[in-house]
Simulated assay, not measured.
Amino acid sequence: MNVIKVLNAQPAEDGAGVKIRRVPGFDGRYLDPFLMLDELKSDHSDDYMAGFPAHPHRGIETFTYLIKGGFEHRDHLGNRKAVRAGDVQWMSTGKGVIHSEMPLADSEGLHGFQIWLNMDAKDKMNAPQYQDSAQSGLPQISSQGVHLKALAGAWTLNAEQVQSPLSNLACNGAIADINIESKAQLEMPAMGCERVLAYIHTGSITAAGQRYQAGQLLVLDGDSAIIATTDQPSGLLLLRGEPLHQPIAHMGPFVMNTQAQLQDAIRDYQNGQFGQLSQ
């Protein structure tokens, strides 16, 4: 496994003061087509119960995955869903979405992720889309102490392939949660795409003689096989996609290609063109 770059998640706050760890990529250097990975992990409700009240987005896709706890999603399109442990939720915000994500009152701790993907310039003003896995579930593969859950896209482990019901992410984006038992070895062939990322969320892994810890995002060579071992139960998110190599203009919840487009987004939101959150 050829690790090109190691990025460390940094403490941050978002929403109404939710404590997170973030790996930003708005400069387009290492994450493109992904823009940001946020990890929310706490057993203390004060760290997350204020949640993410109603806010807008334009020009991105948001992908939420929960390992522990739950959120209620609401948006101006009329979607109102409880997203619980083991579920994923995806929104292609396109020309504009207003939504909220609030922790469920029965959550005893929270561990989850929100990942932003960029959208091609030609698609940024498309109509919004929403999908989750609450009804369909997510397929899994287990082999020799390695357990892979296909969160988005198609994945192969030891010649067995699974396809997530979420298959329309921008830039051929795909995401898997991989859990490795102690003393087991993860082996996967080269992804064959330009962008491959691994975010360690539990334990640690060793690859090519180097040890990597939870909270580190590894930028991998897409033409190199993935081989890693661990001496403790460990978990990582594996992400792949095709970079856009397009200009990124970012301001808060809006990601466009030019400053003029950002000003248009702000004006449209202030003029009420994003709609209103459903009751």
Rank of each mutant, 00 (worst) to 15 (best):
G145H: 10
D32M: 06
A159T: 15
G173Y: 07
L220Y: 02
Q279D: 15
F254E: 01
R84F: 06
S234Q: 10
S42R: 07
M119A: 10
L117W: 04
V196K: 05
W155V: 10
D75Q: 11
W155I: 07
Q131R: 14
V146W: 02
A225T: 10
N8K: 15
P128M: 11
F274L: 09
L197C: 05
I205M: 07
N172S: 15
A228P: 02
G86P: 01
V23A: 08
Q129H: 13
M119C: 05
P139H: 03
L7W: 05
A174H: 09
F254T: 02
Q114V: 01
P189S: 04
A54C: 13
Q144I: 04
K122L: 11
T202L: 13
E194T: 12
L239K: 00
S45R: 13
F52C: 06
C171V: 07
L104G: 01
D87L: 08
L217V: 03
F274V: 05
S234P: 11
M125V: 15
L238K: 03
G28N: 13
G28D: 07
V6C: 05
I180S: 00
L238C: 04
Q232H: 12
G192S: 05
K95P: 08
M119K: 02
G275W: 00
D38W: 04
L138Q: 03
Q114H: 02
L186Q: 01
V219L: 04
A85L: 08
D120Q: 13
N126L: 12
D268G: 10
S167E: 08
A207E: 10
R80K: 15
L138T: 07
R195T: 10
N8W: 15
P11K: 10
A184W: 05
H245N: 12
S45W: 07
G86W: 07
H250W: 13
M191N: 02
N158Y: 05
L40I: 15
Q135M: 13
I98A: 04
D123W: 10
T230R: 08
A159S: 15
L236D: 01
S204K: 14
L239Y: 01
F63Y: 09
P253A: 07
E194R: 11
Q163V: 08
M91Q: 09
L236W: 04
D47W: 01
A249I: 10
Q263S: 09
R74P: 00
L104D: 03
W116K: 11
K41S: 12
L166S: 00
S234T: 13
Q259G: 15
E39Y: 09
L197W: 00
Y30S: 14
Q213H: 13
L104Y: 11
H245K: 09
T206W: 03
S224C: 01
L148Y: 00
